[in-house]
Amino acid sequence: MIETLGLAYRYPGGAELRFPDVQVDQGGTLLLRGPSGSGKSTWLALAAGLLTATEGEIIVADQPLRALGGRARDAWRAGAIGLLPQKLYLSDALTVAGNLALVYYAAGLPVDHGAINRALEALGVGDLAQRLPEQLSGGQAQRVALARAVLRAPRVILADEPTASLDDGACASALNLLRQSAQGCGATLVIATHDRRVAEALPQASELLFSSQNGTIPASDGHRSL
């Protein structure tokens, strides 16, 4: 589950974002909707433990993140969070399988080649394991990045603009894959998006709406459905 209470983040420059409280059950879906620059990615970074809230509390996968120090937060993230950033960050120095092996390297665990193959197979890219990322199409690369996100069956999947620049067919397919992958491992799915098609495709999802405002406090308008 995910729960926030009085969550706020102040950037080193002084601008502050305040987020309305939200609660999503384990296995549920939350959409962070709003235009670019409205704070969706910052919320994701807070949920991933990459940023520390300046006020309030955020509990992700039953873990209050304020209670965790830097090292513990890294270890927690390695086990509990599956990240699918908008820019996929596949390393050109490594093969597809090598990119997935980074998940184990980051967590300090021995590489489970069987799990890597199964994750790639499940997403229909099993035959691409030995290719380099530069040899993949955009859709294939996204599947590989998704396989990396769900490889260790995380409790929460955080996806940032997963359908940006996809046509309608590819958008539906990507959302389908995300939803199935999250269901497959019983993970809570959080999608940050400004794409209306996502909300239409996931009508049952909770929503947190973000808006850009003038001044230094561009924050959520506090609207929350469900």
Partner: peptide, 18 residues
């Protein structure tokens, strides 16, 4: 050049020293 690779490692949970 590899800032993104290194950032990805951090996103995946690698501690900064690693």
């Amino acid at each position: 050049e590899r800032r993104s690779d290194l950032a990805m490692l951090r996103m995946l949970g690698a501690p900064p020293w690693k």
